[in-house]
Amino acid sequence: MTEEMAPDIHSKHFKAVDRALIALMILPILACMVLKIIYTPATEGVHISGALVFYQNDAMPVMPLIISESQVNSWGVMISILGLCLYLTHGLTARAVTKRQLVAEWIVEKCQNLVNENMGDYFSAWGPFVTAIIALSAFSSLICLLGLFSPTGDVNITGGWAILVFFLIMHYKFRGGFWNYFIGLFKPIPVFAPMNLIGEFATPLSMAFRHYGNILSGAVISALMASALGGLSQTVLGWLPGVLGEIPFLRVGLPAILSIYFDVFSGCMQAFIFAMLTMLNVSGAVPWDDWNARKEKRARRKAGAAQQPAA
């Protein structure tokens, strides 16, 4: 047995790569912040608005091409997560020597267990996909702690994810044959067909709106609270002399506590729920009986085709 040479974690080369990966984690977020600072119009006080539009091209054929803040932020989050993954898996060895390897192993193990428990052994290859959804969604929601617009507060982003999940669900539903699926729409009685059809499209719609609504409502309530506290502080403490009267003292504290619920807890919860619903919907979509019958039929036909030329 050949002992694989362990990477020297104290060498200059290793540390330089480490620093580059940490920069890959931090720089996209910093770039998003700089873009936001450049593009934010000068206004006074708290302002509730959607995502900023960075670039708009009206000359596109179907509809204008809009590059908005939420898109750019989600790209930043993606690059940042890529940096995090590369950093955690940098210098992997058979026997863990670094702390980051333990963290990476813990994450992989937990997510794989989650997928195996909820989807069954047939879908165990779905671990990376589900983990990617959880990570992207959670980090997108948590990015608003840095003062950036969280991409999940925009229905276009969560709608895109939901459409992706919808295609996956349909792929597994068609496993039992298109005809069987089509017949299934008319069960238990043909009158239910429109409702069943609406139900098919309601799944991705409700997933998208659930995630988006939770994050957006948190952002709106936080902004309303902050502006209300600012006004209250101006009326109550406005008599203080000079600059002291202009500082909204009452805004200290309470919005932070609200933020722990709305941004941290709700963001992580919604990421988990989105992944959970993805797993349940996809694993529940496979018509096992029809699929097995179809596989048997195909195997029999193949066997028949093989026998005929012999006979």
Binding site: R210, N214, M269
Partner: peptide
């Protein structure tokens, strides 16, 4: 979180 969905639909309409 799933039961909240219908309430959130109302909230989105209000917003």
């Amino acid at each position: 979180a799933i039961a909240e969905t219908t309430g959130l639909y109302g909230l989105i309409v209000a917003i």
